[in-house]
Design a protein around this nucleic acid. Structure first.
Lengths: 157, 157
DNA sequence: CCAAGATAATTATTGGACATAACTGTTATG
DNA sequence: CATAACAGTTATGTCCAATAATTATCTTGG
């Protein structure tokens, strides 16, 4: 344990204790990754949240806002501005739902599909760049650990 | 690949595409973990950021705000309110620095040390709970992968 | 059919986290 | 000693997400 008793003026700030926690390491790792991802998406006029929303709309054509909000873990009210943003750029449409006039069917336009595909190529590159240097076993372990943490954090305390 | 062409009204929202990205899985895992951690710290009157700051002050007694801010990846201006909060509860003090009257030496009070130790016990429990069910190899792989991602995201593109 | 309640989307307001710029006092430098 | 650099602070604005309230629609029980 390298730890000074008092460093009123000296150099590094130690975070040994915090490094012992997964959460701290995850936050730092995610912050770094996020910075790179934001830079990756910016040229496409997409943010992380709008890219995610677009991806789910592509994969679930006709999905309704409330279920999309749930899938993205945000409140319906907050999804409104996301959809506004995507609709204003004419990447998604608010279509009518035959048997329920309260709801909208979210669908991707051709332009939306195009920007999504292009952005996805960049995001895949970003993803590969992040993982570069890790062996396949390690990547697999990471995937497993993350899905484990997600499940653990959510429910069963 | 189970994927519907159109689910205007049906049930689940698929996120197969996004699941392929580390960032998406990390965000979801961290959100879940964070929710649990917030609940863990709340009884102590601590937030994630104030707990982290307190931890660094404990480990680096006498540290100055600007270096603490840097260690926490936030701007000096925003650290002020964090320190205000900790000082108001009398958990840390803004001590004088002998040879530089511009700076403060942040130090932990006895009460601060006490609440930090108690909170740390709870945080360790939280951490163990999050990791429960993962084997040691998997935990090690997670640690390694996270530190790798942190380094990858930051600099060397 | 109609009244009452539930539901879907929206709007407006708020609080937290973070950034920038400007200001005060102190230190360092030519 | 004048000027620049620096530490901390203040003020302000932005972004994101949560909450509450509003409007329109659907459902259900009488």
């Amino acid at each position: 344990m390298t730890k000074p008793a008092d460093d009123t003026k000296s150099d590094p700030v130690y975070d040994t204790r915090l490094r012992g926690f997964v959460g701290y390491n995850m936050k730092r790792a995610f912050n770094a990754l996020q910075a790179d991802l934001v830079r990756t998406l910016e040229p496409f006029g997409l943010r992380m949240i709008t890219y995610s929303a677009l991806a789910l709309i592509v994969e679930n054509s006709g999905v309704r806002p409330s279920r999309l909000a749930e899938a993205l873990s945000l409140k319906r009210a907050n999804l409104v501005v996301i959809v506004d943003e995507l609709e204003e750029r004419e990447w998604v449409t608010r279509g009518v739902v035959a048997d329920d006039r309260r709801a909208y069917a979210l669908q991707c336009t051709l332009a939306g599909r195009k920007v999504f595909d292009e952005a996805s190529t960049a995001v895949r590159r970003h993803d590969a760049r992040m993982l570069q240097g890790l062996r396949d076993v390690e990547k697999a372990a990471l995937r497993k650990a993350l899905s484990h943490l997600e499940a653990r954090g959510k429910g069963l305390g």
